[in-house]
Protein backbone atom coordinates (compact mmCIF):
# COMPACT_ATOMS: atom_id res chain seq x y z
CA UNK A 1 0.00 0.00 0.00
CA UNK A 2 2.74 2.43 1.00
CA UNK A 3 6.42 1.83 0.54
CA UNK A 4 9.23 4.11 1.68
CA UNK A 5 12.64 3.20 0.32
CA UNK A 6 15.88 4.49 1.82
CA UNK A 7 14.32 7.82 2.80
CA UNK A 8 16.57 10.52 4.21
CA UNK A 9 15.36 13.94 5.22
CA UNK A 10 17.77 16.74 6.06
CA UNK A 11 16.50 20.18 7.04
CA UNK A 12 18.58 23.28 6.17
CA UNK A 13 21.25 21.33 4.24
CA UNK A 14 24.59 23.11 3.86
CA UNK A 15 23.98 25.52 6.73
CA UNK A 16 25.15 25.48 10.37
CA UNK A 17 21.55 24.57 11.28
CA UNK A 18 21.69 21.36 9.23
CA UNK A 19 19.71 18.59 10.86
CA UNK A 20 19.04 15.09 9.59
CA UNK A 21 15.76 13.90 11.05
CA UNK A 22 15.20 10.74 9.01
CA UNK A 23 18.14 8.49 8.15
CA UNK A 24 17.95 5.93 5.37
CA UNK A 25 14.57 4.68 6.50
CA UNK A 26 12.66 1.94 4.68
CA UNK A 27 9.15 0.87 5.57
CA UNK A 28 6.46 -1.06 3.73
CA UNK A 29 2.85 -1.19 4.91
CA UNK A 30 0.65 -3.87 3.34
CA UNK A 31 -3.09 -3.36 2.79
CA UNK A 32 -4.94 -3.79 6.07
CA UNK A 33 -1.85 -3.32 8.24
CA UNK A 34 -2.35 -1.41 11.46
CA UNK A 35 1.06 -0.14 12.54
CA UNK A 36 1.71 1.70 15.80
CA UNK A 37 4.76 3.93 15.99
CA UNK A 38 6.45 4.99 19.23
CA UNK A 39 9.63 6.88 20.02
CA UNK A 40 10.86 9.75 22.12
CA UNK A 41 10.50 13.39 21.13
CA UNK A 42 12.63 14.23 18.11
CA UNK A 43 12.76 10.63 16.90
CA UNK A 44 11.27 11.74 13.55
CA UNK A 45 7.72 10.35 13.87
CA UNK A 46 5.95 13.50 12.76
CA UNK A 47 8.46 14.11 9.96
CA UNK A 48 7.78 10.54 8.80
CA UNK A 49 4.07 11.40 8.55
CA UNK A 50 4.84 14.71 6.81
CA UNK A 51 6.90 12.77 4.26
CA UNK A 52 4.14 10.23 3.65
CA UNK A 53 1.45 12.91 3.29
CA UNK A 54 3.64 15.15 1.13
CA UNK A 55 3.82 18.14 3.50
CA UNK A 56 7.62 17.85 3.16
CA UNK A 57 9.65 16.15 0.44
CA UNK A 58 12.53 13.74 1.14
CA UNK A 59 16.19 14.69 0.52
CA UNK A 60 16.83 11.18 -0.83
CA UNK A 61 14.87 8.01 -1.45
CA UNK A 62 11.55 7.10 -2.99
CA UNK A 63 7.95 6.91 -1.78
CA UNK A 64 5.37 4.73 -3.50
CA UNK A 65 1.68 4.56 -2.83
CA UNK A 66 -0.52 1.85 -4.37
CA UNK A 67 2.45 1.01 -6.66
CA UNK A 68 2.65 4.59 -7.94
CA UNK A 69 5.67 6.79 -7.38
CA UNK A 70 4.54 9.82 -5.34
CA UNK A 71 7.86 11.06 -3.91
CA UNK A 72 7.37 14.68 -4.98
CA UNK A 73 3.63 14.76 -5.53
CA UNK A 74 2.06 17.77 -3.74
CA UNK A 75 0.17 17.17 -0.52
CA UNK A 76 -3.30 18.03 -1.84
CA UNK A 77 -3.00 15.49 -4.67
CA UNK A 78 -1.73 12.67 -2.48
CA UNK A 79 -4.48 13.49 0.01
CA UNK A 80 -6.93 11.80 -2.38
CA UNK A 81 -5.84 8.50 -0.77
CA UNK A 82 -4.83 9.65 2.70
CA UNK A 83 -6.85 10.61 5.75
CA UNK A 84 -4.72 12.37 8.36
CA UNK A 85 -5.72 13.33 11.90
CA UNK A 86 -3.53 15.67 13.94
CA UNK A 87 -2.92 15.95 17.65
CA UNK A 88 -4.60 19.37 17.74
CA UNK A 89 -8.39 18.80 17.87
CA UNK A 90 -8.84 22.15 16.07
CA UNK A 91 -6.83 21.07 13.02
CA UNK A 92 -9.36 18.72 11.44
CA UNK A 93 -12.49 20.86 11.35
CA UNK A 94 -13.53 24.39 10.35
CA UNK A 95 -14.61 26.02 13.65
CA UNK A 96 -16.85 28.74 12.24
CA UNK A 97 -18.95 26.31 10.24
CA UNK A 98 -21.74 23.98 11.29
CA UNK A 99 -21.31 20.25 11.90
CA UNK A 100 -23.23 19.37 8.74
CA UNK A 101 -21.27 21.87 6.60
CA UNK A 102 -18.05 20.34 7.91
CA UNK A 103 -19.28 16.87 7.06
CA UNK A 104 -20.33 17.96 3.58
CA UNK A 105 -16.82 19.31 2.99
CA UNK A 106 -15.26 15.98 3.91
CA UNK A 107 -17.93 13.83 2.25
CA UNK A 108 -15.76 13.68 -0.84
CA UNK A 109 -12.18 14.14 -1.87
CA UNK A 110 -10.80 16.45 -4.52
CA UNK A 111 -12.04 19.50 -6.43
CA UNK A 112 -15.78 20.06 -6.69
CA UNK A 113 -18.14 22.16 -8.80
CA UNK A 114 -20.74 24.63 -7.58
CA UNK A 115 -23.49 22.07 -7.09
CA UNK A 116 -25.72 21.75 -4.04
CA UNK A 117 -25.42 18.27 -2.50
CA UNK A 118 -26.39 19.12 1.08
CA UNK A 119 -30.07 18.18 0.77
CA UNK A 120 -32.49 16.55 3.18
CA UNK A 121 -31.32 13.00 2.42
CA UNK A 122 -27.68 14.00 2.93
CA UNK A 123 -28.52 15.76 6.23
CA UNK A 124 -30.28 12.63 7.44
CA UNK A 125 -27.30 10.48 6.44
CA UNK A 126 -24.92 12.76 8.35
CA UNK A 127 -27.15 12.82 11.42
CA UNK A 128 -27.33 9.02 11.40
CA UNK A 129 -23.55 8.80 11.15
CA UNK A 130 -23.04 11.27 14.00
CA UNK A 131 -25.47 9.20 16.07
CA UNK A 132 -22.99 6.31 15.98
CA UNK A 133 -20.68 8.48 18.11
CA UNK A 134 -23.32 8.36 20.83
CA UNK A 135 -22.60 11.92 22.02
CA UNK A 136 -25.98 13.54 21.33
CA UNK A 137 -24.43 15.63 18.56
CA UNK A 138 -27.13 14.56 16.07
CA UNK A 139 -29.45 17.19 17.60
CA UNK A 140 -26.84 19.93 17.12
CA UNK A 141 -26.10 19.52 13.42
CA UNK A 142 -26.56 23.26 12.78
CA UNK A 143 -24.31 24.33 15.66
CA UNK A 144 -20.84 25.67 14.94
CA UNK A 145 -18.05 23.17 15.53
CA UNK A 146 -16.35 25.75 17.79
CA UNK A 147 -19.05 25.01 20.40
CA UNK A 148 -17.89 21.38 20.72
CA UNK A 149 -15.43 20.07 23.31
CA UNK A 150 -11.98 18.86 22.26
CA UNK A 151 -13.02 15.21 22.58
CA UNK A 152 -16.19 15.76 20.57
CA UNK A 153 -14.27 17.60 17.87
CA UNK A 154 -11.68 14.85 17.61
CA UNK A 155 -14.36 12.15 17.44
CA UNK A 156 -16.14 14.15 14.75
CA UNK A 157 -12.85 14.61 12.87
CA UNK A 158 -12.36 10.84 12.93
CA UNK A 159 -15.86 10.27 11.58
CA UNK A 160 -15.36 12.91 8.87
CA UNK A 161 -11.98 11.52 7.87
CA UNK A 162 -13.44 8.06 7.41
CA UNK A 163 -16.43 9.54 5.54
CA UNK A 164 -14.13 10.83 2.80
CA UNK A 165 -13.11 7.25 2.08
CA UNK A 166 -9.31 7.21 2.36
CA UNK A 167 -7.22 4.09 1.71
CA UNK A 168 -4.63 5.03 4.31
CA UNK A 169 -5.21 6.51 7.73
CA UNK A 170 -2.45 8.52 9.44
CA UNK A 171 -3.09 9.17 13.13
CA UNK A 172 -0.60 11.62 14.61
CA UNK A 173 -1.04 11.26 18.40
CA UNK A 174 -4.67 12.09 17.86
CA UNK A 175 -5.65 11.42 21.47
CA UNK A 176 -2.67 13.10 23.16
CA UNK A 177 -4.38 16.47 23.67
CA UNK A 178 -7.52 14.94 25.25
CA UNK A 179 -8.32 14.09 28.86
CA UNK A 180 -8.11 10.35 29.72
CA UNK A 181 -11.81 9.54 29.39
CA UNK A 182 -12.16 11.37 26.07
CA UNK A 183 -8.92 9.80 24.87
CA UNK A 184 -10.26 6.34 25.68
CA UNK A 185 -13.52 7.13 23.89
CA UNK A 186 -11.79 8.40 20.73
CA UNK A 187 -9.48 5.39 20.80
CA UNK A 188 -12.47 3.07 20.99
CA UNK A 189 -14.12 4.82 18.03
CA UNK A 190 -10.83 4.60 16.13
CA UNK A 191 -10.62 0.87 16.70
CA UNK A 192 -14.21 0.45 15.53
CA UNK A 193 -13.86 2.36 12.23
CA UNK A 194 -10.52 0.76 11.36
CA UNK A 195 -12.04 -2.68 11.83
CA UNK A 196 -15.25 -1.81 9.96
CA UNK A 197 -13.41 -0.45 6.93
CA UNK A 198 -10.20 -2.54 7.24
CA UNK A 199 -8.16 0.63 6.70
CA UNK A 200 -4.40 0.56 6.37
CA UNK A 201 -3.38 2.60 9.40
CA UNK A 202 -0.25 4.18 10.80
CA UNK A 203 -0.63 5.52 14.32
CA UNK A 204 1.94 7.56 16.23
CA UNK A 205 1.37 7.42 19.97
CA UNK A 206 3.08 8.40 23.20
CA UNK A 207 1.07 5.82 25.07
CA UNK A 208 3.01 2.55 25.21
CA UNK A 209 -0.01 0.54 26.32
CA UNK A 210 -1.98 1.74 23.30
CA UNK A 211 0.95 0.92 21.06
CA UNK A 212 1.13 -2.62 22.41
CA UNK A 213 -2.61 -3.32 22.55
CA UNK A 214 -3.41 -1.83 19.17
CA UNK A 215 -2.68 -3.12 15.65
CA UNK A 216 -0.68 -5.96 14.16
CA UNK A 217 2.74 -4.34 14.01
CA UNK A 218 4.79 -2.04 16.25
CA UNK A 219 7.67 0.20 15.24
CA UNK A 220 9.96 2.07 17.58
CA UNK A 221 11.90 5.01 16.18
CA UNK A 222 14.97 6.74 17.54
CA UNK A 223 17.09 9.47 15.96
CA UNK A 224 15.43 9.08 12.56
CA UNK A 225 15.76 5.32 12.30
CA UNK A 226 13.53 2.33 12.94
CA UNK A 227 15.18 0.46 15.81
CA UNK A 228 12.46 -2.02 16.74
CA UNK A 229 9.97 -3.65 14.36
CA UNK A 230 7.75 -6.43 15.70
CA UNK A 231 4.73 -7.99 14.03
CA UNK A 232 2.33 -10.94 14.06
CA UNK A 233 2.57 -13.42 16.91
CA UNK A 234 5.62 -11.71 18.38
CA UNK A 235 3.61 -8.47 18.61
CA UNK A 236 0.75 -10.24 20.41
CA UNK A 237 3.05 -11.48 23.16
CA UNK A 238 4.84 -8.14 23.55
CA UNK A 239 5.09 -6.55 27.01
CA UNK A 240 6.34 -3.14 28.13
CA UNK A 241 9.37 -4.69 29.82
CA UNK A 242 10.32 -6.64 26.70
CA UNK A 243 9.98 -3.51 24.60
CA UNK A 244 12.21 -1.45 26.90
CA UNK A 245 14.77 -4.28 26.92
CA UNK A 246 14.75 -4.31 23.10
CA UNK A 247 15.50 -0.61 23.03
CA UNK A 248 18.38 -1.02 25.45
CA UNK A 249 19.83 -3.92 23.44
CA UNK A 250 19.80 -2.10 20.09
CA UNK A 251 20.84 1.27 21.35
CA UNK A 252 23.22 0.15 24.10
CA UNK A 253 21.76 2.83 26.32
CA UNK A 254 19.00 2.98 28.87
CA UNK A 255 15.57 3.86 27.69
CA UNK A 256 15.25 7.27 29.20
CA UNK A 257 12.22 8.99 27.84
CA UNK A 258 10.21 9.48 31.02
CA UNK A 259 7.23 10.51 29.00
CA UNK A 260 7.04 7.17 27.24
CA UNK A 261 7.70 5.21 30.44
CA UNK A 262 5.21 7.03 32.59
CA UNK A 263 2.27 7.27 30.24
CA UNK A 264 -0.13 4.42 30.72
Amino acid sequence: MIALECITKTFNPGTPGEKTVIRNLSLTADPGDVITIIGSNGAGKTTLFNLISGAVFPSAGEIRMKDRKVTFEPEYRRAMHIGRIFQDPLAGTASNMTIEDNMMITAKKGFRWPKISLNRAMRQKFADLVKTLDMGLETRMKANVSSLSGGQRQALTLLMTVLSGPDILLLDEHTAALDPSNAAMVMEQTQRVIQERSLTTLMVTHNMNHAIAFGNRLIMMDAGEIIVDVKGVEKQDLTREALIQMFADTRKKAFESDEVLLST
Binding site: Y76, R84, M97
Partner: peptide, 26 residues
Protein backbone atom coordinates in the same frame (compact mmCIF):
# COMPACT_ATOMS: atom_id res chain seq x y z
CA UNK B 1 -22.93 29.79 -4.17
CA UNK B 2 -21.79 29.41 -0.56
CA UNK B 3 -24.24 26.55 -0.07
CA UNK B 4 -22.72 24.56 -2.93
CA UNK B 5 -19.97 21.99 -2.44
CA UNK B 6 -17.43 24.43 -3.87
CA UNK B 7 -18.72 27.32 -1.74
CA UNK B 8 -18.42 25.27 1.46
CA UNK B 9 -14.77 24.53 0.72
CA UNK B 10 -14.21 28.30 0.43
CA UNK B 11 -15.60 28.64 3.95
CA UNK B 12 -13.14 26.01 5.18
CA UNK B 13 -10.19 27.66 3.40
CA UNK B 14 -10.38 30.85 5.47
CA UNK B 15 -10.95 28.82 8.61
CA UNK B 16 -8.45 26.04 8.28
CA UNK B 17 -6.32 25.75 5.13
CA UNK B 18 -4.81 22.45 6.28
CA UNK B 19 -8.28 20.88 6.28
CA UNK B 20 -8.77 21.87 2.64
CA UNK B 21 -5.44 20.34 1.63
CA UNK B 22 -6.16 17.12 3.53
CA UNK B 23 -9.43 16.99 1.58
CA UNK B 24 -7.50 16.83 -1.69
CA UNK B 25 -8.33 20.35 -2.88
CA UNK B 26 -5.55 22.66 -4.07
Amino acid sequence: FFLTDLGLVFGALGNNEQMVRVQGVN
